[in-house]
Design a protein around this nucleic acid. Structure first.
Lengths: 137, 137
DNA sequence: TATTGTTATACTCTATAACTATA
DNA sequence: TATAGTTATAGAGTATAACAATA
């Protein structure tokens, strides 16, 4: 299986750093941190009933989430209200403004990604995306 | 280009975390940190004339490298001698023990990687590896 | 004066523990 | 008592600045 290649970890993490560097100016242009964007992405898929669940879902610590949620809420990008049925929990969801911002940023990121992928032959690109979908956590 | 997928960054970094978690027990079994292994890997490709150059090559800071090199040298895994032609520089290279340890660990990692890749259809696996080689920094 | 390596220091990120409020 | 969220604190990882040796 192609034993003359670098370790997968080296190649995958190297590409990861490259992708993050690519996203950075896009996010900075909207004054959003990477974790802020990760939260918007997670909430764009499904609303969440507790901050702990969101933290687990994105692989973060619940205490790390708090300043991020404070900021997003303060900017009107997310709803964050006590659950009437259990006032300990906080119902989390995107506001319309949050949905719009997320879609705008994601579209810009997608364009940059496609620039990168355009360098690949069609069959490699297809296999790459299929493998990523199968292997990513 | 498959616009219903998660962001590349999310998938790539997710896979990266998975690979690191996979490597962790292998490295721990040899009492080697991830950065220690990265240094051995870099030196297995070419010897290096300065610590700064090595730091740049692996994407680390030169000051971060020092305790790592101290440890590797102390364990007899690397040579680290002043360059006779310019005694400011430190010539860095693997010792035979360092070469042997690196090969042993890399072989174990390769087996674990291939377990992961075995889940993929042949064409996806081929495209995935080709794309990674083309895109990684 | 410039460069390499080192040490000392500060900063950022993240996790742990203690506290408040709800149940 | 148990759980969600928050705050305060500590720890790891990393970067910056000052220093020593050599050129």
């Amino acid at each position: 299986m192609d034993s003359g290649r670098p370790d997968l970890g080296e190649m995958v993490m190297g590409l990861g750093r490259r992708l993050i560097a690519m996203e950075q100016p896009i996010l900075a242009g909207h004054e959003l941190s990477m974790w802020g964007y990760v939260v918007l992405t997670a909430l764009s898929r499904r609303t969440v009933r507790t901050q702990s669940a969101l933290a687990t879902a994105i692989g973060a610590d619940k205490t790390r989430l708090i300043p991020i949620l404070d900021d997003l809420q303060h900017r009107g990008l997310i709803h964050r209200e006590p659950d009437p049925a259990d006032r300990r929990a906080r119902l989390l969801a995107l506001t319309p403004a949050g949905t719009a911002l997320h879609q705008q940023i994601q579209a810009a990121i997608r364009i940059a990604e496609n620039d990168l992928l355009a360098a690949l032959p069609e069959s490699d690109r297809h296999g790459f995306l299929a493998a990523l979908r199968a292997l990513h956590t």
